[in-house]
Design a protein around this nucleic acid. Sequence first.
DNA 1: TAGTCAGTTCGGAAATAATAGAACCAAACA
DNA 2: TGTTTGGTTCTATTATTTCCGAACTGACTA
Lengths: 160, 160
Amino acid sequence: MQDIITDKEREEKQSELVEIMGRISCRGGGTALSGRILGLLSFLDQEEFTFEEIVDRLKISKSSVSTTLNHLMESDKIEYITYPGDRKRYFRIKVNTPKTFIQSLRKYIERFEKVNRAALDLKKDRNSRSAKNIQAMLKSLTFWKAQMDEYEKEFNIDEL
Amino acid sequence: MQDIITDKEREEKQSELVEIMGRISCRGGGTALSGRILGLLSFLDQEEFTFEEIVDRLKISKSSVSTTLNHLMESDKIEYITYPGDRKRYFRIKVNTPKTFIQSLRKYIERFEKVNRAALDLKKDRNSRSAKNIQAMLKSLTFWKAQMDEYEKEFNIDEL
DNA sequence: TAGTCAGTTCGGAAATAATAGAACCAAACA
DNA sequence: TGTTTGGTTCTATTATTTCCGAACTGACTA
């Protein structure tokens, strides 16, 4: 049964989700603030927000918005567009963020793998408990890297 | 060509890796200290370490070691064993840690999925740019959850 | 040329997290 | 009974992160 919901109610609920995103984003490598900005650009019905709108709606300082927007652009999570005769930048989420998400995870995994491989090479006894554990770990890391390749193949959306 | 390496050199290199683990572990949800403890228990040739040995080797305070060891045990990364007539606890890494690693990731993904699904439900226009982006995201989250199931099946080592 | 607009940059305050220090405690033991 | 061993717990201290305010900048505009 579909509830009838007013636009105002809808927006309130959306704003709640924005706050939740802020909370989630702390884990997942981001600040509360970057999470809320991502939520705003993603969850509201409005598709593009100016700098000022973001400041007003989220009630965060211009400086924080400025630095956070730049981080989010650097990490390819958002982008902005402009309109002729309008100085403002209109920010919006960049489509298909998940790919970049995986890329940073891959980097982490690769680093981890490297250290563990080095540690294994230094082991006196490769059949020791801890050496075997490292081997098991490396095996599963290999699994995940393969899965990532799979993923990139499957979701390989055309880059801009 | 295999290099000949003395035990001393080996241990030095292993200790270096322990420090690197400390650095890596910051990302990956842990403290530098917990990373170093994991490295110590995992990378050295010695398989079991007492509380005191950890304190001495890593030069961190008893209190920090105590709390960190307890965290690591809670999150199933390490365990200890005892020997009759010896009060000391002998700490060692718990085999097959990777599984628990995936479990925490899964929890995060599920939370993220939930918020995004809620946001999608609140969208006025499901064909809007941001709505489509959410849909794409959800699709890839589904992919990863399936991959995790796959992983657990493949690496399903017998629980203690 | 002065003034506004749309931000950026710099310094620091506030909050939070990580680590240490010291006192404490329970079990074993002399 | 007092003392040592093997830790724990509670309270600082220190470091780091996050965020803000205020001053600044460069492009445009009146």
